[in-house]
């Protein structure tokens, strides 16, 4: 009897392993996606952001069909794309900041004489 119970519990745990892993991954993907959106990914990294969002939705859809393996794959893909989108946003914003700084540091041209009526070289 105890041997049977242990076997059933193990089987249950293995069976429950899919949703647990899925839950963990879908939450990570969700968080990453939300962060990416807040950072402005739809503007700065639309390809990665929208693909992540599509994978994320597909992962949830697969969950509804209890196909956790595919759901985890899609959630993982969604998470990767969301992180990639964040990196791209960071990179692009840094570039913008540098450009703005350089523009601010460029000294204004010194006002010169309107004309140069001085004696020219002979």
């Amino acid at each position: 009897m105890p041997y049977r119970t242990l076997l059933i519990s193990a089987a249950a745990l293995v069976a429950a392993c899919g949703p647990i892993e899925y839950t963990s991954m879908i939450m990570k993907a969700d968080t990453a996606l939300e962060k990416a959106e807040r950072m402005g990914a739809p503007k700065y990294a639309p390809l990665e952001y929208w693909r992540a969002k599509a994978y994320f939705d597909k992962a949830r859809e697969e969950t509804g069909r209890n196909d956790y393996d595919f759901a985890i794959d899609y959630a993982t893909q969604a998470y990767r794309d969301a992180k990639k989108a964040q990196d791209i946003v960071d990179e692009k914003k840094e570039k913008e900041r540098k450009a703005a700084k350089e523009k601010a540091n460029v000294p204004a041209p010194a006002p010169g004489p309107a004309s140069a009526p001085g004696t020219p070289p002979r």
Partner: peptide
């Protein structure tokens, strides 16, 4: 697509094609 700001559609098309393969695998 990037130049014409059509990356959202591009991304969705890309994902949908992936999903085709995924569904076929299933």
């Amino acid at each position: 697509a990037e130049r014409c700001q059509a990356l959202k559609s591009f991304a969705l098309a890309w994902a949908e094609i992936d999903f085709v393969h995924g569904e076929l695998r299933q």
